Amino acid sequence: MTDGGLRERKKRETRLALSRATIRLALERGLDAVSVEDVAAEVGVSERTFRNYFASKAEAVVAAQVERGQRIGEVLRERPADEPLWDALVHAVVEQFEPATAGPDADRYGAALQRLLAEPAVQHEVFRAHATAQDDLTAAVADRTGTTADDLYPQVVAAVVSAGLGAAMARWTRDPGQSLGSLIRDVFDQIRAGLPDPR
């Protein structure tokens, strides 16, 4: 790995560490009760370092989501060219969320996460993250299918993936006792089947 690549990886790791620390502390104490100084101390960096990465705690909360969105596009581009698109998409999406498993305090975690995501500042950042992730995925789908990001097909696919992932995350947040990876697979199975009438 080149020095530039190593630097970028370290920056990415620091950014994610700050994001995870912000989320962990906010779930424990509430976002307003957590200071930037608290988060920086948790990660072992300066408050200035936090400010170099994020303009606000809300932006830090959503950074892991932004990272996952970017990784979905990257992984999709790395999948075998002859793999069916939806198989590749499911793999790329699930890979980013598979570690999310239920723990003994799953219900309490889910309730705290709902409160955190309901914060107006966090909701604004989530909206921005969704838009960015959808644009990134549109470009990745276009690359894979020989279309362009301006074409309708990759835009529709990215929008459907975004909506399906949003539905899975919303369900998991309400019931974190289940496997998020399994839930995402179930959502995508229904999408691939053409969303048949459940009756």
Rank of each mutant, 00 (worst) to 15 (best):
G69F: 00
F54T: 05
E83Y: 07
D3A: 15
A81L: 09
V66I: 08
G69R: 01
L89N: 12
A163F: 05
Y53D: 13
G44H: 09
Q155V: 11
D87P: 01
V75W: 10
V75A: 03
R7M: 12
F97G: 04
L152H: 08
A26W: 00
G30V: 08
E28K: 03
R174S: 15
T147A: 13
Q70D: 15
T22G: 07
R20G: 06
V34C: 06
E37T: 06
L18S: 00
L116P: 01
W172N: 08
E37W: 02
D107T: 09
F50I: 04
T22N: 05
G166C: 01
V75R: 12
R108A: 14
A63F: 01
I23E: 14
A129K: 03
G103R: 02
E47A: 14
V141K: 12
G5R: 14
A81Y: 05
G181I: 03
P104E: 12
Q190F: 11
S19P: 02
L25G: 03
R192T: 15
A55E: 13
K11L: 15
Y153W: 14
D135I: 07
V66E: 05
D135H: 13
R29D: 07
V90D: 10
G4V: 12
L25Y: 04
A106N: 01
S19N: 00
D32K: 15
A92D: 10
A81S: 14
V187N: 10
A41P: 00
E42F: 00
